[in-house]
Amino acid sequence: MIRRLGTWLGLAAACAWSLAPFAWQVLTSVKPQAELESLPPLLPSTITLVHYEAVFAGHPFAHLLLNSFAVAACATALALALGSLAGFALAKLRPPGRAATLAAVVVLSMLPPVATVSPLFLLAGAAGLRDTLTGLALVYAGFALPLAVWLMAQFFRSVPDDLYIAARVDGCSLLGAFGKVMLPLAVPGLTATGLLVFVFCWNEFLFALTLTSSTAARTVPVGIALFPGIHEVPWGEIAAASVVATAPLVLLAAVFQRRVLDGLTAGAVKG
């Protein structure tokens, strides 16, 4: 009984610790400006949306959101398409050298972004892709690919070999078997991988900071990091922007909880 109580207290503490900082930011975002300039009060006397209005009215924040969404969606689609093909080939066709290929993929996924940011800056400039959504999406897809290949290989591995063989024998070409049988069976894996890649792209900061220079291609994290303040930091607006930038991800994580957990733990535990 005491043990049960301890578990509940511990869980409550863990949940509070996880939720409190973000909850504080949500509170900040709806506090009237006057109440932000002193503490206490902890809780807002009235709930106001002026900070949200300011974020959207005073800045090109809506444009940044659109940029972020476009870049993340394109990069995710690209990484899923290429990653699932490669993962399928590695898991089901077992080419010689697959172990070395997978090891190389893992090593690439561990590269520190700052190590390649200078060459990518120069290469993107040379290719005319600097400050474009296309350039950013390509870079993101490349950086997310090791994760996508690795996860999809893990998920395809869990689809029985016999199903691939049956599809081929039943008259499917290689791509037919992939599209008609393997891919539909890997939808949970595809969802998990897509979520992780999307979150990675949505959150990425370093490349977004260096490869973009104007609102044309700037994404939300850069916008929040460089939030303009003339005399003092506009904490209310920053909080509002933070909530807007985070809400889609928290929502995705809540709706697809199972898939996110699958994705986070695949490979590390099963693999």
Partner: peptide
Amino acid sequence: PPQQRDVAMVFQSYA
């Protein structure tokens, strides 16, 4: 290629 060999298969796992 397999799809043109005109064989059919039955598996232990049913597949």
